[in-house]
Computed example of a mutant assay.
Amino acid sequence: MDTDIERIELGDVEVIKVVEVRGPFGAPGDLFPGIEGAWRAGEEWLAPRFQDPDSGAVLAAVQAWVLRSEGRTIVVDPGVGNGRERPGTPHFSGLDTDFPDRLVRAGVRPEDVDLVVNTHVHADHVGWNTREEGGSWVPTFPNATYLVPRADHDFFGPEGAARTVRDNHRFLFADSVAPVVEAGQAVLWEGESHRIDGQLTLEPAPGHTPGSSVLRLASGTDRAVFVGDLLHSPAQFLAPSCSSAMCVDPAESAASRVRVLGRAADEGELVIPAHFPGPGAAEIRRDGAGFAVHRWAA
């Protein structure tokens, strides 16, 4: 069994999870300031899937989602990429994985991809936008349109505020975003929503970054929401007001998370976060000021 590739059918949409890397990503209190109480309350079920039982570190994965919808192949959040310089996140620097081969094993050749969705512009969501060729970064998916939130493009771009914060932001824009824009393959979307097709819609969910978005799926009787980095751990179901240390605006991120999870609980949407290892999707219910997992989806 190839545990790096898993599939599920949601209505008429095939969803394929393709893992790039997985492992410990840091201590709970460092990644989620203020979450310690909720973390202790959930320890019995967080370990061993979502917390290393020995070190106590948060376990997470970087993975892309491939969607086949209405005859098109769509890649959502294509990981870190190989050979990147990421001084602020050493575990993302200089990766050398076989992720492209995993895509092929999943039945996805780069030339077959029609659309790439970046739910937001962070190093682990835009990396495989590009690959290195002859000393330059070129689009990995030569026939694809890349959907990039305009707010993030402007924030992380050459004139954006993020460039003054971390070298990571400057590097990731230069090697993973600018090349697809310069190739004429990027669409910078903005507004209240962006309709991809009759089953898929992008909607803003700002806070983690200014342009962070969620991807909603509605096909037949099935509903799902790909929430990107609104969640990094299921402990945030218990404490949805607790944002990650990576959020640009923690309060706005919390408001987006509460809103999106509330709709998912009320309307029966399957919640599919970017970084959960193992079971990557959950049905949730309201539980006091937070939410509880009703069922993990296979």
Rank of each mutant, 00 (worst) to 15 (best):
Gly127Ala: 03
Cys247Val: 07
Asn82Gln: 09
Leu95Val: 04
Leu231Arg: 00
Glu269Gln: 15
Asn143Trp: 03
Pro33Lys: 04
Gly134Val: 00
Phe276Glu: 02
Ala239His: 05
Gly220Lys: 06
Arg7Val: 00
Asp152Ser: 09
Val293Leu: 06
Arg40Cys: 01
Ala205Pro: 01
Leu31Arg: 10
Gly268Lys: 15
Glu111Leu: 07
Ser136His: 14
His91Gln: 11
Gln51Tyr: 06
Gln63Ala: 15
Ser69Met: 03
Val165Thr: 15
Phe237Asp: 06
Pro277Gly: 11
Pro210Gly: 11
Ala178Trp: 15
Val80Ala: 01
Thr3Ala: 13
Asp154Lys: 12
Val126Gly: 04
Val75Thr: 09
Glu283Ala: 00
Arg195Asn: 05
Gly81Phe: 03
Leu31Gln: 11
Gly107Gln: 01
Ala239Ile: 05
Asp2Ser: 10
Val181Cys: 01
Val177Cys: 08
Val181Asn: 01
Glu252Met: 03
Gly280Leu: 10
His120Gln: 08
Arg295Cys: 14
Ile74Cys: 08
Arg102His: 02
Val214Asp: 05
Cys247Ser: 13
Leu270Glu: 13
Trp128Cys: 08
Gly134Cys: 00
Gln51His: 10
Trp39Gln: 06
Gly11Pro: 09
Pro110Tyr: 03
Val258Gln: 14
Ala178Lys: 15
Asn143Gly: 04
Phe237Gln: 05
Asp114Cys: 06
Ser233Trp: 04
Ala292His: 08
Val80Pro: 00
Val121Ile: 13
Glu36His: 10
Arg68Thr: 08
Leu59Tyr: 07
Arg216Gln: 05
Thr119Glu: 14
His122Glu: 14
Gly79Thr: 07
Gly184Asn: 03
Thr145Val: 08
Gly278Ile: 09
Val271Thr: 10
Trp296Ile: 04
Asp52Lys: 01
Arg216Asp: 07
Thr97Phe: 09
Ala255His: 13
His232Asn: 08
Val214Phe: 06
His208Val: 01
Thr119Phe: 10
Ala64Arg: 02
Asn82Ala: 14
Gly94Met: 11
Ser69His: 02
His275Cys: 14
Glu36Cys: 05
Pro179His: 03
Glu159Arg: 07
Phe155Met: 06
Ala264Met: 08
Gly88His: 06
Asp114Tyr: 04
Asp96Arg: 15
Gly79Pro: 02
Arg68Val: 07
Val258Thr: 12
His91Asp: 07
His194Pro: 06
Val66Met: 03
Asn118His: 11
Asp12Arg: 13
Glu111Trp: 10
His194Gln: 12
Phe141Tyr: 15
Val180Arg: 07
Asp112Leu: 11
Leu95Tyr: 01
Leu231Val: 01
Ile196His: 02
His294Asn: 10
Ala106Lys: 02
Gly88Asp: 10
